[in-house]
């Protein structure tokens, strides 16, 4: 049913989405915590920056990344100086692009879950003489768990479903940047509709199961975006 090229694409997609999800949980948690707690005037601008990929066409992000990561762009010059070379057309180029692209899907559910905690648990922790790190790891994180689960699922699923950005900076290289969505696109363009159906059907089934999982959590008290 699946060709070797399909299996390569599926494996690559899973590898990409897993890497991106892990990175996003690490990067997104402090951002979400800051956004949830701060009273700074920067909250609005930073929140808007994080949310930008929700409204920007992927081609805009892909186009800017292609230029920024290129030999004359600031990311490209940085990576060249670090001896990594250029990022477009590489797995790690896709990882960085996807981190930008899926950021709001991870930050917002965590932020909402943290905001929903309110002051009370933090005050209680403080009266019990818990330090800030202690409070964060032993009070905030466990209580925000549903937000983290939603964030991880959405971040993973959104990366799997990414297409426009990958098309712009990927270069369609087998086992490196040819993810499932690009493989489907190639089949459709080449009018190999039978093969396209197999992979496209898999994507529909996968997306349905993921959303079913997310709404399952929602019924148990936490909405997709984390608030109660």
């Amino acid at each position: 049913m699946f060709t070797d090229a399909d299996l390569d694409a599926i494996w690559l997609t899973l590898r990409l989405a897993t890497t991106v999800t892990v990175l996003l949980l690490l990067i997104g948690t402090p951002i979400a915590w800051w956004l949830a707690r701060t009273r700074s005037w920067l909250k609005g601008p930073i929140g808007a920056l994080v949310a930008l990929p929700l409204v920007l066409p992927p081609t805009v992000l892909g186009f800017y990344l292609l230029i920024a990561m290129g030999p004359n762009g600031w990311i490209g010059q940085l990576t060249q100086e670090m001896g990594i070379g250029l990022l477009p057309f590489t797995f790690w180029g896709l990882v960085i692009a996807s981190v930008f692209y899926s950021l709001p899907f991870v930050v917002q559910p965590i932020q909402n879950a943290m905001e929903a905690l309110g002051e009370r648990p933090l005050e209680v922790a403080a009266t019990l003489r818990a330090g800030p790190w202690d409070t964060f790891f032993n009070v905030v994180l466990p209580l925000s768990k549903p937000g983290f689960i939603t964030a991880a699922i959405l971040g993973f699923a959104h990366t799997v479903g990414e297409f426009g950005v990958v098309l712009m900076i990927g270069g369609n290289i087998p086992q490196e940047t040819r993810v499932v969505s690009v493989q489907i696109y190639d089949y459709v363009e080449a009018m190999e509709y039978g093969q396209a159906h197999v992979l496209a059907g898999l994507m529909v089934a996968f997306s349905f199961v993921v959303l079913l999982g997310v709404y399952g959590f929602q019924r148990r008290g936490t909405s997709v975006w984390g608030s109660r």
Binding site: L66, I67, G70, L86, P88, M168, G171, D186
Partner: peptide, 18 residues
Amino acid sequence: WVQGENIAQTYQFVATGN
């Protein structure tokens, strides 16, 4: 090899210096 989905995108890969 890096492949553009059409010749316009292929041009873009070279024109941006990537």
